[in-house]
Computed example of a mutant assay.
Amino acid sequence: MTHDDTVLIDNFLEMMAVERGSSVNTLAAYRRDLEGASDILAAGLTQAKRQDIEKLVASWSGLAASTLARKTSALRQYFGYLVDEAIIADDPSSALPKPGARQSLPKVLGRDDMDRIFAILEAKAGNPKAGDKDLRLLALIELLYGSGLRASELVELPYNAFLSDRPLLAIKGKGGHQRMVPISKRARAAVARWRATLPEDSKWLFPSRAGHLSRIRLYQMVKELAAEAGIDPATVSPHVLRHAFATHLLEGGADLRVLQTLLGHADISTTQIYTHVDSKRLVELVNARHPLTKIRP
């Protein structure tokens, strides 16, 4: 197994445990499946192409249907994680056996849910006795939901990445891909308040004693906030806020190509999990705007 796979599998399983609440048994099985697949592929999973995955699947002949389904699920989710984190550009999982059911859209919070979350955040940050942690949490959620940042991109923002007079923020993903994301006036104001509490020689925008805020701690903070807002914490995570950003933008009129750029997806196929939202909007547009709709039968 390559060094890259060793580190990335650990990071993936950490995400599965914290964000999705996967059981110990599931995590152990996924580790065996992923490490076993990495051992079979000479160049490892991060370098795998479609033909490599086809050979891997061929080596699974004779396995029980349940075992095959689990291995397929582990790899599909792992490759999805690598694409979402911009570690790989092309997802080879199309070579895996197709699941029985269509992939569903990830969990998404409704606008009412977001209203409740921001009501709590703004009440705390607006209190004259607001603490630094209240200001930090408001800035974090404004950036997660307002700009669709990945958890890793958010916690790794350097102190000097943010300038209050600039509406765009340069984001560099783990794969070295850079993109510009818009920062709303609300987010700029929230981050400026938080940034004012930090020393000017701070290396990170969201520092901690060990360096920068960890992804695990961010997951915990988001789930604690969800519980406070009366939302099931199991349905909320930084990744869910990113999906809410995407879904609500599409509902507001954005198109998939714009969304692909904002989310940092190298391949439009990754963004196409949102096509049902876009399709609904297009049907409404045709029904409302097409000339034939104005002709009486």
Rank of each mutant, 00 (worst) to 15 (best):
A139N: 11
R70M: 00
P99I: 09
R20N: 04
L263I: 06
L250H: 10
A161Y: 01
L154I: 11
L256S: 11
R50Y: 08
E85Y: 04
L168F: 14
K185E: 13
L262C: 09
K294N: 14
D113M: 00
F79K: 09
Q260T: 06
M180Q: 15
V236P: 01
D115F: 02
R257A: 05
L41P: 05
A210Y: 10
A123H: 12
N25P: 06
A192L: 05
L75E: 11
A37Y: 02
R193G: 01
L144W: 08
A151S: 14
P207N: 04
A89S: 15
D4W: 11
L68H: 05
Y274F: 06
P238W: 00
Y81I: 03
V258M: 15
L282Q: 15
G176V: 02
D33Y: 02
Q47F: 13
R242I: 03
L105D: 07
G62Y: 04
S152M: 13
S147M: 08
R215P: 07
D52T: 12
L75H: 11
G44L: 03
T67P: 05
D90I: 15
E54H: 02
A151E: 10
E85P: 04
D33H: 02
L163C: 11
D232E: 02
I87G: 01
L262E: 04
L249V: 01
I88S: 02
L154E: 12
H265C: 01
L140W: 05
T235M: 12
A123K: 14
D165I: 10
P167A: 08
G36C: 02
G264E: 03
S66H: 13
G100S: 07
M180S: 14
L63C: 12
E35D: 13
I87W: 02
M221A: 01
E153D: 06
E35T: 15
V57Q: 08
L213Y: 12
A246W: 00
I273E: 03
T67W: 01
S164H: 11
G148A: 07
L27K: 03
E14F: 07
G211Q: 04
G253S: 00
A196G: 04
Q47A: 15
L213F: 12
G131Q: 14
L41G: 03
D115G: 11
V7Q: 15
A161R: 06
T261Y: 12
A42G: 13
I117K: 05
V24L: 13
S38Y: 10
S61Y: 08
L263Q: 09
K223P: 00
N25W: 07
R217L: 11
E224W: 06
E228H: 08
V277K: 06
A43G: 13
H177K: 14
A125C: 09
L144E: 01
V18I: 05
F12H: 05
L241Y: 04
L138V: 09
S23R: 07
A89L: 10
P291I: 12
I87C: 03
L137S: 07
L82V: 09
D255E: 00
D201L: 06
E142V: 00
T247Q: 07
A266S: 10
S59Q: 03
S208N: 04
S73T: 11
S61K: 12
I171T: 07
